[in-house]
Design a protein around this nucleic acid. Structure first.
Length: 515
DNA sequence: GTCAGCGTTGAATAG
DNA sequence: TCTATTCAACGCTGA
């Protein structure tokens, strides 16, 4: 917000100085500039039910990551003559109070809110597509094209900022610690190895793109989900989530490298392709009402998922009895980050692959535990993996046994995150229930006592899942057929002066039936 | 209305 | 150890 002499910069995402058009704008010609971050108690306050089913509160690792990002932002602001003002309360109320305190005064406060979190403005893509978001990656690519700013240099350094003015009666504090927010510190081995902040993001970016050949030949599906000493991807996602790293700056850095390489991979599998996936899901989420749920979501298949608390809890708490699945869930809880293909594995297992539990339940768990948890991308991927939208080949199921084995036949990943299995011979590490009792004794891991028996048999569970999904799809088709007939009648009845298209009528009708 | 071709990343098997 | 083929087979798009 800017008004003549004073500006207020409200940081929400975009916790950075580089490529920050709002900050640039607010700084221009202002006598005083108030950089503000509001800690929203709804997001931050400790939740005694944090480990109960269905909790959507942010996990401690992500809160820690956010606080580190704020500390770093404050330090960077101080270097250029400013500082971060951390305020607490309901953001709407706090901002109104800021205005009353005279941070920004005068008549006609100007609000400037540029699109800079994503590569594109989702509204532009949707407009180009005739009012609805593209639902396939290829059509998204065609509509998106080269971003308008692709060859324009971005402002990546700020040499000075206007000072902050009088803060009035506000209790302006330093960035709080997790303890000050009422949390106990996490135990050492439960803490994510990734540190928040713009400085850390830029350092990680430099290291990631230092190997130009690696950047040019990046091919996502070939990455190893079991690599944990050195992850197979950049792990820049949490920094993109909070805007510690500008996706546009990242894009340009990759582009510069590709320009100089003889051959390189392409979207969707390339590194640039990964950034475009982010925008793909942002666009779909922006243009789809009720994107985060099955009911009332026009792009989501209606499937009679189970609401089995026991199965959900076994999955969430790493006790499905499938070491590959359980190890991934341990890494998720401790690190707040797992490889993309590991996310596929456990999401498929929970939903359409084995347990047939509702994808919204799994989404909830990811939402709380991931440090890179992003509303659009998380929901989009759960829709994808559960074969509810975007992707429909439900016969392609990740095996909780052979998928991990393909990458890590010795089971080192499992041994690391599930130490109870560390002495299990490699022949049995993916299926320890098949180990003879003598082997179990020798490995000091009796299945059913020290480590659980599998909650389902993969062979029969996956067969049943396929069957149920087939039935649900048939029912959805029938529903759609029903609606189409009505649409035709409706279109015949109505004169052609109506502005609605067949598509939008069909959607509305379908919606009514689904609701 | 029909149908081939396509879709970020399946598993098992053959060579 | 790596690649190609087969299996079984979905919805959506566009000619």
């Amino acid at each position: 917000m800017a008004s003549g002499a004073n500006s207020l910069m409200w940081f929400r995402k975009g916790l950075r100085l580089h490529d920050n058009p709002a900050l640039e704008y607010a700084a221009k010609g202002s006598k005083f500039l108030y950089p503000v971050f509001v800690i929203d108690p709804h997001y931050m306050e400790p939740d005694p039910t944090a480990f109960s089913l269905g909790s959507s509160k942010a996990g401690l690792n992500r809160i820690q990551f956010l606080l580190e990002s704020l500390v770093d932002l404050d330090l960077s602001l101080k270097k250029v003559g400013s500082r971060l003002l951390v305020l607490k309360g309901d953001p709407g109320e706090v901002l109104i109070r800021c205005l009353k305190e005279g941070y920004v005064s005068g008549t006609g406060v100007e609000i400037f809110s540029p699109v800079s979190h994503t590569l594109y403005n989702p509204a532009d893509i949707i407009r180009k597509n005739g009012g609805s978001p593209p639902l396939s990656y290829q059509s998204f690519l065609k509509l998106a094209g080269q971003p308008s700013w692709a060859t324009t240099p971005l402002l990546t350094t700020i040499s000075s900022l206007p000072p902050i003015g009088n803060t009035g009666s506000f209790a302006v504090s330093e960035v709080p610690t997790v303890r000050e927010l009422g949390y106990e510190d996490l135990a050492e081995d439960e803490r994510t190895p990734f540190k928040g902040g713009e400085s850390e993001a830029l350092k990680r970016l430099r290291e990631s793109i230092a190997n130009k050949e690696w950047v040019a030949n990046f091919e996502k599906p070939k990455g190893d989900p079991s690599a944990f000493l050195k992850p197979a991807t950049t792990v820049l996602s949490p920094y993109l989530k909070f805007g510690c790293l500008s996706s546009r700056y990242f894009y340009q850095c990759i582009q510069d490298i590709l320009k100089c390489s003889k051959k390189h991979t392409s979207p969707p599998v390339s590194l640039l392709g990964q950034l475009l996936w982010r925008d793909f899901f942002y666009t779909a989420a922006f243009g789809t009402p009720n994107f985060n749920q099955m009911k009332g979501n026009r792009i989501c298949k209606q499937i009679p998922w189970k609401n089995d608390d026991e199965l959900l809890a076994a999955w969430r708490d790493s006790r499905t009895g499938f070491p590959w699945i359980d190890a991934i869930m341990v890494q998720l809880r401790k690190w707040g980050w797992i490889h993309h293909l590991a996310r596929h594995s456990v999401a498929c297992f929970l939903t359409r692959g084995d347990l047939f539990v509702h994808w919204e339940r799994g989404r909830h768990v990811f939402e709380r535990l991931l440090i890179d948890s992003d509303w659009a991308i998380n929901n989009g991927n759960w829709l994808w993996l559960s074969c509810s939208s975007f992707f429909y080949q439900y016969n392609r199921i990740y095996s909780p046994i052979s998928f991990g084995k393909k990458y890590d036949s010795a089971g080192n990943y499992i041994r690391h995150f599930l130490p109870v299995l560390k002495d299990m011979p490699k022949e049995y590490i993916y299926e320890p229930w098949t180990a003879p009792i003598s082997v179990q004794r020798k490995a000091k891991c009796i299945i059913g006592i020290d480590y659980p028996k599998p909650v389902v048999s993969h062979d029969s569970a996956s067969k049943e899942c396929k069957m149920r999904l087939g039935e649900a799809y048939a029912l959805n088709k029938k529903l759609n057929g029903l609606v189409s007939d009505e649409d035709l009648n409706e279109l015949r009845r109505k004169a052609d002066n109506e502005s609605t298209t067949l598509d939008s009528v069909s959607r509305k009708k379908k919606q009514k039936l689904i609701d």
